[in-house]
Amino acid sequence: MNDGLAIDVEGVTKRFGGRTVVNNLAMRVRRGEIYGFLGPNGSGKTTFLRMLCGLLRPDAGRGSCLGYDIRSQSAEIKQRVGYMTQRFSFYEDLSLEENLDFVARLYAMPDRRQAVARSLESLGLVGRRRQLAGQLSGGWKQRLALAACLIHQPDLLLLDEPTAGVDPKARRDFWEEIHRLAAQGLTFLITTHYMDEAERCHSLGYIAYGNLLARGTVEEVIQGAGLTTWEVSGGGLWELAESLRGLPGIEQVVAFGSTLHVSGRDAARLQSSLEPWRKGPFRWRAVDSSLEDVFISLMDAARDNFQQG
C-alpha cells in the first residue's frame, strides 16, 4: 500500500504570525524505518511533528501519513499514530496504570484491560503500576510515555526528544526497544540532539531555521557535506584554536577532548591555511568527519544564510 511509505509529504509550510517556522519541507519515511530528525533548538522539529499528527494545520503543503491525507484525514491519522510529546504530558496525579487506562479508553480499545496489562508487562512497569506518575524519575517517565504511545498499537510513532534528560543506560535500553519494535514493522520518526542516537537511525534528516538541509543515511549525510577534517594534538591547543579561527578555508575549530578538529569544505584552502602550523609542536592527522562536525558545519552555514537573508 502506498509504495511502502509511512510518511510522504512535500511543500509543508507553517508560519506563526508572519514568521516561517517550517519552510517548504519534504519528507519520505519508509515503513519499518527509524528516521532521525535533527536540528538546533527552535528549528521547527516539534512544529513539523505536530502538523503530521493533526495538532497544527499546515499553511501549505500536501501529502500523506500512513496513506491518509494530512490535510483532510487527521482523525484517521490520530487513530494510527502515537505521539510522544517533548515535555512529559501525562497526569502526574494519576498512577501509571490509571494513565494507561485513560489513554486506552480514549482510543476505545475493545480489550482495554488486556491492553493495559500487556503494555505494563512489555515495558517492565508491572511492579510500579500503582505509583503516581509524578513520583517517577526521568527514565521511568519516559518509559511510561512510550508505553502510552504504544497502547493502541499504532503503525507510526512520532517521538519528540524522547531521551532528553535520561541516563545512558536507560537511553541504550530505550533504543534497543525501538529497534525491536521497528523490526516488527513499526515506523519511527524521532527527534534527538544526541549524535550516538542519530547514528542508530536508518535515515536522517537535518533541519535548521525551518529548512531541511541534509538527508540520507549517516554515510550519505557525511559524504554529502564534503567536509575535510584534520585532528590536531599536542600542547597549547587553545592558543592554536584562537589563531586558526577565521583564516580562509577554516570553517570550524572544535575541541574534542585533548584534540582539536579543524574542518572546512574547501580542502585545498584549508590545507594552505594550516601550512604555517604544520611544523611546530603539533601532531596532525587527517580524519573522517564525524556526524557532529557535519551538523555544526550545516548549522553555521544555515545561520550565515539566515542572517544575510
Partner: peptide, 11 residues
Amino acid sequence: RGTMENLLSTP
C-alpha cells in the same frame, strides 16, 4: 501542565 497537547493528539 502540557497534558493538553497529549490529549489533542488522540482521537
